[in-house]
Design a protein around this nucleic acid. Sequence first.
DNA 1: TTTCCATTTCCTGATT
DNA 2: GAATCAGGAAATGGAA
Length: 276
Amino acid sequence: MTSATTSTLDSQLFTTWSLNSYSDGSVVVPGGYSGRLWTGECQPQFWSKYQVWEWLQQMMDVYQIDATSMPLHNFDVDGGQLCSMSYQDFLHAAGNVGTVLYHSLAELRLTEPCQSESAHHDVKPTEFDFSCPYPDTVYPSADVCDTSFTSLPPVGSPSSSRTDTKKSHIRTDQVKKHNPRGSHLWEFIRDILLYPERNPGLIKWEDRTEGVFRFLKSEAVAQLWGRRKNNSSMTYEKLSRAMRYYYKREILERVDGRRLVYKFGRNARGWREQET
DNA sequence: TTTCCATTTCCTGATT
DNA sequence: GAATCAGGAAATGGAA
């Protein structure tokens, strides 16, 4: 990949958001969310809606909760509202899973001090709107679009060049780390579709009921996926190869004759409206 | 340590 | 010609 190409990618991404990144590659979002992992640095009552959503995601991963059994729309609340929910409210909102969520939240409220409010930013978490910026908006913490990646390499840097992806030194510069969220590529794509406010304008539904969707910014999505996997050399070409492997497993179905268009298959879960 | 799985990387050729 | 699609082959890294 050339530096010119990288510039194009940067502009694709940064017309959608900007990042607050630190020298160690982490990204910090107001309210205590680190780009590396959910850290729960802040008291739950100060969480934004987005942080509540992230917490739910983590709970699903940690406790192996099926996304289809978690009515996320019942948790479209901020931390204050979440903390005001009773045990019965949790049971009502999430069924049996509500027990786990309720106790997990209670534990967090007892153990987590709020320590990041002034450390990285000047805005109180509860004042923050976690919706993503419009293209021309400079948004100081817009990494909320997807908080699980690190910053882009500098334009034209060696790590952004395709020539450094030869097998002799594949990803030698990357920090290997376990991904506790365990998300697969198709789940990553699904989540972008289900929560477009996180990453607006990257992928859109063509036919919501049929599960047909289209990439609007293919390389930007690939960059995001690469960040999720700590792989700065990810491209749409590679991402699409992984997508094509899903055809055999019936997680995706082919959509003939249409570029950048895919369709969820019978083995893809959690994308239907009644499942979310 | 081995095996398995889910990618990732590279490649060639076809299509748009 | 560039971008994308299709799919083979081999490599990689995390998890069990």
